[in-house]
């Protein structure tokens, strides 16, 4: 995909996202929104094995456990067709499941945030230009309730599983 074509696609996706979910971009949570800084994001480990032990605390989801964000995240999950690939309740399909504990690119909130924002090479679209950070965090908040979070940080919508997948897609 050329860069012009890509831009056109992204802006049309954003336009469609606004059209089908007109209020997206608004803030529903009760807490102030923290937009993670570029430097912080660059330091989010994907490998799960950072060479330099981190002293700073991991980036926190500003909406962690926020019931309103879970509701909004679920709406976004459906209206942006996340559920088309990852299936309702995150069982997986064209995209990997989000309801088990195997995370190809990390299951911590900041890692999920980056997967949504940047996209991933096996077909996950990059949403950073189509969605504002608060919408991505709302999605993260909802996804973390699907059962795949190593330690629940929100009220689970499904019983927490123990299943892991053998290999990665």
């Amino acid at each position: 995909m050329g860069s012009l074509e890509r831009l056109a696609w992204l802006s049309s996706a954003a336009a469609v996202a606004s059209a089908i979910f007109p209020a997206f971009g608004q803030e529903w949570g009760t807490r102030p929104l923290h937009r993670p800084g570029a430097v912080q994001l660059l330091e989010v480990p994907v490998s799960g094995n950072p060479i330099v032990p981190r002293r700073e605390p991991a980036i926190q989801n500003p909406y962690a456990n926020d019931a309103g964000a879970i509701v909004q995240g679920r709406k976004l999950f459906e209206s942006l067709n996340c559920s088309g690939c990852h299936a309702p309740f995150g069982g997986g399909g064209m995209g990997p499941p989000l309801s088990d504990r195997d995370w190809t690119y990390g299951g911590e909130p900041a890692a999920i945030y980056l997967s949504i924002a940047q996209g991933r090479p096996n077909g996950m679209p990059a949403w950073s230009r189509a969605l504002p950070p608060q919408s991505i965090w709302q999605l993260v908040t909802y996804i973390r309730t699907l059962g795949g979070a190593p330690a629940p940080d929100a009220v689970p919508a499904q019983p927490a599983p123990n299943r892991t997948r053998g290999s990665q897609r």
Binding site: A87, P88, G91, G92, G93, P96, P97, S99, Q158, R163
Partner: peptide, 20 residues
């Protein structure tokens, strides 16, 4: 066979467009 090929979650019936 997507539940095997894609290592989908067999507990969620809606996976793979409902085939799971």
């Amino acid at each position: 066979g997507a539940v095997v090929a894609g290592q989908l979650d067999p507990r969620v019936p809606y996976g793979a467009l409902g085939f799971v």
